[in-house]
Design a protein around this nucleic acid. Structure first.
Length: 276
DNA sequence: CTACCATCCTGGTTGC
DNA sequence: TGCAACCAGGATGGTA
């Protein structure tokens, strides 16, 4: 479930094993992802040193020596796994396999092939089409109520849809959009332009708190951010409303049940009693 | 500018 | 048990 917190947890899992290491061997397997690999990706990665690993929205940025950066996205179903000297062969959905000079193996796995892994000039990274139009990082100081209000001003779209729009704020996906609005007490159907003042404050606070909690949960449930099976950053969390249609609204005395509606072809969950 | 829909893929779940 | 329909964490592009 790669939204921002999951990607952040993956990045934190990759860092201690990869930063400072050289990629001794890189193999691309299936190349027909929705967005194809950069030409000769494997050859261009081989022998490079990993300088840093960062995240922007739901993108993973693996900065290499030689002024190039691996830009990766997990799509709907992408995974990263990290194991030491594995003896099992890559599976059918392992599209990239990287082996470090000290024997760790990273596999980029994506059943649905909606993810991507390309190589971009580090100098042009911010201007790259995939990153250029992204809104602010929700956990940064730069993202506050004033910035948020400006971003949604005049927009006659439901606030849930506005939160999914990566230009409004970057990294929120379908689960955390519902969860943030629940925390804020704002109906997902409310028009964005009607979310000013206190509501904007609460939505911003709801976004930050739910993302921080999810990151903390990811970190706390994983040892060194790598599970025994090599899986990075996927943790179980009980959502307050997501996927809980018909259940009681948690932690409050409202008599209503959580409702599921469809907005922009995506499921939205909310408590009609608590969210106005 | 907006809503709405289809599309890219595969696999797990649900319902008949 | 078999099989088809439906659903899924993302993002884009077309149409009205």
């Amino acid at each position: 479930m790669p939204e921002l917190p999951e990607v952040e947890t993956v990045v934190r899992g990759l860092r201690p094993r990869l930063v400072g290491r050289r990629l001794a061997r890189v193999e691309t397997r299936r190349r027909d992802l929705r967005i194809p690999f950069s030409p000769r990706l494997a050859e261009r990665l081989t022998g490079r040193r990993v300088e840093a690993i960062d995240r922007r929205a739901k993108y993973i940025l693996m900065r290499l020596d030689g002024s190039e950066t691996v830009l990766a996205h997990l799509g709907m179903a992408g995974r990263m796994t990290l194991r030491q000297r594995p003896n099992d062969p890559p599976g059918p959905h392992d599209h990239v396999v990287m082996t470090t000079d000290d024997g760790w193996e990273l596999r980029f796995n994506d059943v649905r092939r909606f993810g991507l892994m390309i190589l971009v000039s580090s100098a042009e990274l911010e201007r790259h089409a995939l990153l250029a139009d992204l809104g602010p990082e929700p956990l940064s100081k730069a993202f506050d109520a004033a910035v948020f209000e400006a971003a949604i001003a005049g927009r006659r779209t439901p606030i849930k849809a506005a939160l999914l729009d990566q230009k409004t704020v970057a990294g929120i996906g379908n689960i955390y959009a519902s969860e943030a609005l629940f925390r804020a007490g704002v109906s997902p159907k409310r028009l964005a332009l009607r979310c000013r003042g206190e509501r904007a404050d609460k939505i911003v606070a709801g976004i930050k708190s739910v993302l921080n909690d999810a990151i903390a949960a990811g970190g706390s449930t994983l040892r060194d951010y790598v599970q025994a099976d090599g899986e990075l950053g996927y943790f179980q969390q009980r959502w307050a409303v997501y996927d809980r249609e018909g259940q009681k609204c948690p932690g409050c005395r409202c008599k209503g049940a959580i409702r599921r509606i469809v907005q922009s072809n995506r499921a939205t969950y909310y408590c009609p009693d608590r969210q106005k």
